[in-house]
Nucleic acid binder design. Structure first.
Lengths: 127, 127
DNA sequence: CTAATTATGGACATTATAAGTCTATAATAA
DNA sequence: TTATTATAGACTTATAATGTCCATAATTAG
């Protein structure tokens, strides 16, 4: 019933990138990892998924690191969650009674509301 | 990011009890277990938690089984979830930056909305 | 009363998944 | 061309949910 720690790492990483965006510097994973007190190899894996989705930009080589794309302000908290954990689903009905199952339908409503709510939360709100 | 299967078992069990309440019969765990195709020993453990919270009534002995309390209609989906999984929390901030952490605050909003939504869903809606 | 029936509880085993590590490789710029 | 950075795969570890087994307690039909 929780989002993964990876999502937490991702959100904090992006938040840090946003806070530093005006400096123009690229931030290597080591910097982020020590900031968040997480192993850099593990954080790498998390960030790689954000790169795949183009929510951050990876720059190899000396003076490289991660930076934000031009359209960073459009990213929502929902986007980050999907990139890390996949589609958030609150409830998996073990007995697939299908659409006529009231329990399923009821929980789906809650899930839909939550997703909507997450989509409305922008990365901009993390500043 | 999901509610446990136990919650699913619990909701379906209660829904069945509700659907049969007019018959006045007590439903033994074997009946519920075969209905849901779950082992009865495991389902027992789930139901025991509902009994502790007085959401269902256990009756030992021959012709015994589970039944509903007088105030069954007041039970919410939220109540059942708390009884089985404990308080639902969507997000556990690994870096407890406390209240000044925007990420934490933002996710807490989503969580609060979800809890509110679950509290509004009544067991009556499962009929 | 007593025997059959039902629930409860504790210890244990299993499984699934998240979390994390290690190491080799690819990319890039100084 | 070398140092620096990211990527990727295989692997281990940790943790929690899930499930089993068996002994015990409660209750009621007969």
């Amino acid at each position: 019933m929780k989002f993964s720690r990876g999502t937490d790492y991702a959100l904090h990483s992006i938040a840090y990138l946003v806070s530093r965006k005006d400096s123009g510097e690229k931030i290597p994973v080591q910097d982020l990892a020590s900031k968040l007190d997480v192993s850099s190899t593990y954080l790498s894996k998390i960030l790689a998924r954000l790169v795949k989705h183009k929510y951050i930009i990876a720059n190899s080589g000396a003076k490289g690191g991660y930076s934000l794309p031009a359209d960073w302000a459009d990213i929502s908290v929902y986007d980050v969650i999907v990139a890390i954990d996949g589609e958030p689903t609150l409830f998996e009905d073990s007995f697939n009674h299908g659409h006529e199952c009231k329990i399923q339908r009821l929980m789906m409503e809650v899930e839909t509301d939550m997703v909507q709510s997450l989509k409305e939360k922008s990365i901009k709100d993390l500043i």
